[in-house]
Design a binder for these strands. Structure first.
Lengths: 237, 237
DNA sequence: GCCACTTGTTAACGAGCTGTTAAAGAGATA
DNA sequence: TATCTCTTTAACAGCTCGTTAACAAGTGGC
């Protein structure tokens, strides 16, 4: 259920941060941990998250301030505070800046999990009118991201989850370079040698699937990434 | 903002109940107060509310049980627990039956107000209930959701409640992916491992019922959901 | 041309997901 | 209380797909 849900945790207590990350990763979340407001905001701008978990007391920018900046970037993303500051005024301020929840330390991991799930559950119900296209014409092929389907000449093939994700990234950047690191980061939320190789495997599989139209090809850019070449770039809704 | 929002409070402590009601009415909510699970459920069935605030320890039916009954009546309405029982197990059970929040006494009125507003805010964002079709042609079959009936060649079969719900969701998304999580959420109003498996059992039963027309089939999309394939998509009112 | 490194491709393992049936449980009815 | 109906839980078989490994081939610096 929480598969692939991306969480941003901003927590300056290294020990607690790691505990939290480990716990949430064991619950199949994809977690990014930052130690201060600055890097939290940077990460937020670069990547995209389903929920942010913010400490209030942070070096430099405090959590409330960070929350405001995140809101400036994204009007929808839910966030909650997880903090030792249990004073009523802090709580009220937390809700005032738009938090979905305000949890005080010490907290129970499982309760936190429940609260996260409540937030994501409600979020999921609001089908976000995706502003990015989800349907692409690739030469004689047609790729529908929502249906997870690649068609050619009336013949359609169902893609696996990851194949679908990789092809989508390629399509969004068609005829431009899709950087390895960027792609791996978006798909897995983290980066290591094996994930990079796994990504290569998907590239290989997609090439095989797309072989029927010679005008479509995935070219490697040594040490940088890949380009999906498409002759008549067009895309549906 | 809270203008005209209707709250159902089920609280057996008369004193606390009145305090709560007065406070929330002063915040422009429209409040109905009940003293026990029985009358709470009665009120819920008769009237309609935007949010329910439930005590856990109630005479006769306890709060968890009441919540389950409310869920049976309405899969959408949000509810929260407001209770002296602060044990972890109780909290987890509260969330497990589908609560949006679990607040332990003593609590701060203003914090409660914030939490109520968070829930109603999420709720408000939700889609306008549009008219959805209730009658579907599925190849040689005909499915009528209101009659809870699946017919083929003059022969009709009555569906159970859940079979009916699952088939409806599939039909509404025919030839598109019906996501597991979304479906389970809509059918049960909450989500856990077993509900997912129960959903699978209904898929299996529907497959069996639909076997007489080969052009109709329910395909699994690994880890994502199911697609009801229909050849000539048509649907009645 | 030689070397270190990157990329291409295939195959296979195994965690975890799904299909199905049956038993247990819950709720309604009488 | 006994009975019936429907849903949930359990159990098990079978399957899928992402990862990893292994090796071949390509790249570019020197």
């Amino acid at each position: 259920m929480s598969e692939n849900q991306r969480l941003l945790i901003v927590e300056d207590d290294i020990h607690l941060g790691f505990l939290l990350m480990e716990f949430l990763e064991s619950e199949k979340f994809n977690v990014k941990l930052c130690r201060d407001g600055q890097s939290g905001l940077m990460s937020f701008k670069k990547e995209s998250f389903d929920l942010c978990i913010l400490d209030v007391m942070l070096p430099q920018t405090d959590g409330f301030c960070l929350a405001r900046q995140i809101r400036k970037e994204d009007k929808e993303v839910p966030f909650l505070f997880l903090t030792a500051r249990s004073m009523k005024e802090d709580k009220l301020q937390g809700f005032a800046v738009g938090a979905e929840d305000y949890i005080t330390k010490p907290f129970d991991e499982e309760e936190l999990l429940c609260r996260i799930q409540v937030i994501l559950r409600r979020q999921a119900q609001q089908q976000i009118p995706e502003e990015k296209p989800t349907s692409f014409d690739l030469g004689r092929y047609h790729f529908d991201y929502n249906k997870q389907e690649l068609c050619i000449e009336g013949h359609s093939r169902r893609l696996t989850e990851k194949e679908n994700e990789v092809l989508r990234l390629l399509c969004l950047k068609q005829n431009q370079i899709l950087k390895r690191d960027e792609a791996v980061e978006k798909i897995y939320g983290r980066h290591d040698y094996f994930l990079g190789r796994s990504f290569d495997v998907f590239i290989s599989r997609l090439r095989k699937m797309l072989r029927q139209d010679k005008s479509i090809r995935i070219e490697n850019v040594f040490k940088v990434g890949f380009i999906l070449h498409v002759q008549n770039p067009q895309q549906g809704h």
